[in-house]
Simulated assay, not measured.
Amino acid sequence: MKRLLIIEDEKELALSLESHFFNLEIETKISLNGEDGIKQYNEFKPDLVLLDINLPLKNGWEVCEYIRSKSETPIIMMTARDSELDEIHGLEIGADDYIIKPFSINVLSTKVKKILKLNSQTIYSYKNLIYTYRDEILKIGNERVSLSVREKDLLEYFIKNKNKPLSRSNILLEIWGMDNEFDERASDTLVKRLRKKLGSYEELIGTVRGVGYIFEEK
């Protein structure tokens, strides 16, 4: 999984970006100031950095220069400034791209996907189990496994939240939405169906007593 570090002092924006990229299967961390950004960069070792310019403690220029002195990690600068000189300066000190606030999340996503070389062919694999997101196809060995829409949604939800305990109510909300007429037993029924489809890999879906389920690679 690719790693993305967001260094942005506008917390609401940072959280919104985190949520968006999490849904794209990108592991994401947030820093709200320049000093912590440098610390997180060294610890998290991201594949890409989204970097605001107007940061407390250390500004974006300083953080960019620090990162570039250590590695070639791609950097996209984010700023409310619209000066061409700022853009040129960012590129001169090592930024790979530049986006001006307010920006379209889809435009930013395109930039991120391009740099991280992500596309709709994202694949999850474990031993000889392969799930292809674009085609929504599950294969175990050479056998293609047919999944219903709900089973596919549940499998993707489990993969996205791998190693995290998930409650029955959260599964219900994610798969059927808020305006549903089902009780939590519907989650149990769907999990049972998916386990059966996984065959010898049914152990990937564990039961967490008193909570719900967890998707873990053994």
Results as ranks from 00 to 15, higher is better:
181 E>G: 13
88 I>P: 03
63 V>C: 03
142 N>R: 13
3 R>L: 10
123 I>W: 00
181 E>R: 09
165 P>Y: 15
42 N>V: 04
10 E>T: 15
94 G>S: 09
8 E>P: 04
26 I>W: 00
63 V>R: 00
191 V>I: 15
65 E>C: 02
87 E>W: 03
16 S>K: 14
204 L>Y: 13
206 G>P: 00
105 I>W: 12
25 E>A: 12
69 S>Y: 10
208 V>K: 10
115 I>C: 02
213 Y>S: 09
164 K>F: 03
134 R>I: 12
84 E>W: 14
208 V>Q: 04
73 T>P: 03
206 G>D: 15
182 F>K: 12
145 V>H: 08
81 R>K: 13
18 E>V: 09
166 L>K: 02
191 V>F: 11
109 S>Q: 11
171 I>C: 05
60 G>P: 01
28 T>D: 00
75 I>L: 00
28 T>P: 00
216 E>K: 11
145 V>D: 07
88 I>C: 10
9 D>F: 04
188 D>H: 10
152 K>W: 01
211 V>S: 11
189 T>S: 15
138 L>S: 03
72 E>L: 13
19 S>C: 06
91 L>C: 07
21 F>A: 06
199 G>W: 05
211 V>N: 12
143 E>P: 01
50 L>W: 03
52 D>W: 02
133 Y>E: 15
8 E>H: 10
58 K>L: 15
127 K>W: 09
149 V>C: 13
119 N>K: 06
127 K>P: 06
176 W>D: 11
46 P>T: 01
142 N>V: 05
133 Y>S: 14
22 F>R: 15
208 V>G: 10
133 Y>C: 03
13 L>T: 11
182 F>V: 08
122 T>I: 15
64 C>Q: 02
71 S>D: 12
111 K>I: 06
85 L>T: 14
33 N>Y: 15
73 T>V: 12
77 M>P: 00
203 E>Q: 14
119 N>F: 02
62 E>H: 03
91 L>A: 11
167 S>D: 05
22 F>P: 00
150 R>G: 08
31 S>V: 03
173 L>Q: 15
82 D>G: 07
22 F>A: 14
56 P>W: 12
8 E>Q: 12
192 K>P: 00
190 L>D: 01
144 R>M: 11
82 D>A: 12
183 D>T: 10
41 Y>V: 08
94 G>H: 02
111 K>P: 00
74 P>R: 07
166 L>S: 01
3 R>I: 13
212 G>E: 05
105 I>C: 13
185 R>E: 15
181 E>A: 14
161 N>L: 01
53 I>C: 03
120 S>F: 09
217 E>R: 14
188 D>T: 12
162 K>F: 07
14 A>Q: 03
38 I>N: 02
145 V>I: 11
202 E>R: 09
164 K>A: 11
23 N>M: 13
52 D>L: 00
23 N>Q: 09
26 I>H: 02
21 F>C: 08
207 T>F: 10
64 C>V: 11
140 I>S: 05
129 L>S: 04
94 G>E: 10
127 K>G: 02
96 D>V: 11
57 L>P: 02
101 K>G: 07
189 T>I: 14
33 N>K: 05
20 H>W: 07
54 N>F: 08
190 L>M: 11
181 E>T: 14
20 H>E: 09
